Amino acid sequence: MLGTENCKLKYTYVHGGLTTFEPCYDLAKNSWIFAASRKVYGDDVFRAMYQTSSKNLGLEWSRNSKLNMNFKVSASINLAEESKMPKLTAESTWNFEV
């Protein structure tokens, strides 16, 4: 909400219809979130994101298929932790018409 500390300023720039850059400033945390995504092969999107406040780096691959089968595979890592073990996630969605 504007006028409160819980405010984020976000700018989206689409380059060539395929690549999107999204810098975002979080006023409450006094930090930046940088994201970039790229469409490939029509239905696939690769996205990278970095949060300066938490030092989280994330990568994501998603597909919104016309065949009613969607999926997302993501990996994230906290660069501030000593272990540097990535967290991997996979999601799948099927849409059926009855």
Rank of each mutant, 00 (worst) to 15 (best):
F21Q: 02
N78W: 06
Y13Q: 06
E22T: 11
N68C: 08
T4A: 12
S54C: 06
E60Q: 14
S53C: 09
L2F: 09
E60M: 14
I77E: 04
S76M: 14
F96D: 01
G17C: 04
L88A: 09
K55P: 02
G3Y: 06
K87I: 05
S92P: 01
Y50L: 04
F96H: 06
S62F: 02
A80K: 14
G3W: 06
N6T: 04
A80V: 02
M49S: 10
S74P: 00
N68R: 14
A75K: 07
M1V: 07
A75S: 15
M85V: 08
V45C: 10
S53M: 10
N64P: 00
K8I: 04
N64M: 09
G58V: 00
Y25P: 00
N30R: 15
W32G: 01
K29T: 05
L67Q: 15
K10Y: 02
E97N: 09
K29A: 09
V45A: 12
V73E: 04
N6V: 00
V45L: 12
E22L: 10
K72V: 05
C7T: 15
L67E: 10
K72P: 01
L59H: 02
N64V: 05
E91D: 09
D43I: 04
N30Q: 13
T52G: 07
V45G: 04
Y11F: 12
G3N: 06
S92T: 08
V45R: 15
H15L: 15
G58R: 08
Y50N: 02
N30D: 12
R63V: 01
M1F: 14
L59T: 00
F34Y: 15
T4L: 09
S74E: 09
Y13K: 08
E5S: 11
F21T: 01
V40D: 03
K66S: 10
F46Q: 04
E81T: 07
K55W: 07
G58M: 09
K8W: 02
K66V: 01
W94L: 14
Y41G: 00
D26P: 01
T20P: 00
E22S: 14
F46I: 11
K87M: 09
A28R: 10
A28T: 02
E81H: 10
V98H: 13
P86N: 05
N56D: 14
K87A: 13
Y25T: 00
L18G: 00
A28Y: 13
C7Q: 09
I77F: 08
T12S: 14
V40R: 13
T52A: 08
D43A: 11
V14F: 11
L79A: 02
D44M: 13
K87Q: 11
S92I: 13
A75V: 06
K29D: 04
L18F: 11
K84I: 01
K10V: 08
Q51T: 07
L2C: 04
M49L: 11
N56P: 01
S65T: 04
R47A: 13
P23L: 07
R38Q: 15
Y13F: 13
A36V: 10
A80M: 07
G16V: 01
L27S: 08
I33F: 05
M1H: 12
A48K: 02
L57T: 00
L59R: 00
H15E: 08
